[in-house]
Amino acid sequence: MTKATVSRKSNGGYVLVIPGARPGDEVTVEIENARQNIASAEIHEPDSMTGDKTKDRRG
């Protein structure tokens, strides 16, 4: 598991895509697929999420 703070900017050119997370959210994620400059992750634990916390935003 990895802790991440969601941002609109990449960190040094590396992009982490977290469906259901919004800029400003702090989440613990599990990396599902990683490549040289992009990775996708699934939210494992919403540490601090903005907006409606009771609604599942993952679709």
Rank of each mutant, 00 (worst) to 15 (best):
Q36F: 06
M49W: 03
D47E: 15
G24S: 04
K9N: 07
R8H: 13
N11V: 08
E32S: 04
S7W: 04
K55T: 14
G59H: 11
I43G: 03
T5K: 13
P23I: 02
P19Q: 04
V6K: 06
E32T: 03
Q36V: 09
I31T: 01
P46V: 03
A41F: 01
R57T: 10
V29K: 01
E42Q: 14
D25F: 00
V29H: 00
D25Y: 05
A39Q: 00
Y14G: 00
Q36R: 08
T50R: 11
V6W: 04
T5L: 15
K9D: 11
S7V: 00
P46K: 06
S48R: 10
I31G: 00
S40A: 00
S48K: 11
M1S: 11
A39G: 04
R22F: 12
P23T: 02
R58C: 07
R57Y: 11
K53F: 14
S48D: 13
E42T: 13
T28N: 09
T28I: 12
I38Q: 09
R35Q: 10
G13A: 06
S10R: 10
K53G: 12
Y14E: 08
P46I: 01
E42Y: 09
S10E: 14
A34L: 06
S40C: 07
D52M: 10
S7P: 02
D52G: 05
L16T: 08
G59F: 07
P46C: 07
D47I: 14
T50V: 14
V15L: 14
D47H: 09
M49C: 14
H44C: 10
K53D: 14
V6F: 07
K55W: 12
S7K: 04
V6E: 03
R57G: 07
V17W: 02
T2M: 13
T5D: 03
S48H: 12
P46H: 08
G51D: 06
N11E: 15
H44V: 13
G20Q: 05
R58M: 04
V15S: 11
E45V: 09
G13L: 03
K9S: 10
V17G: 05
T5W: 09
T5A: 08
S10T: 15
E26V: 09
D56E: 12
E26T: 14
N33V: 05
E30N: 03
D52H: 10
T2Y: 13
M49F: 05
K9P: 05
I43R: 05
T28P: 02
A4Q: 10
A39L: 04
P46S: 04
G24E: 06
T54W: 12
K9A: 08
P23W: 01
P46L: 00
I18R: 03
R35V: 01
E42G: 07
D25R: 00
N37L: 07
R8C: 07
M1F: 09
E45C: 07
G20A: 05
N11R: 13
D47M: 12
K3G: 09
E30T: 02
I31W: 02
G24V: 01
G59T: 10
K53A: 15
R58A: 08
T2V: 15
G24Q: 04
R57Q: 12
G59S: 15
N11G: 11
I31A: 01
R22Q: 14
V6A: 13
T2A: 12
V27A: 05
T5N: 07
M1Q: 12
D56M: 10
K55M: 15
R57N: 13
D52W: 06
I43P: 02
A39V: 03
T50Q: 13
T5H: 08
R22A: 09
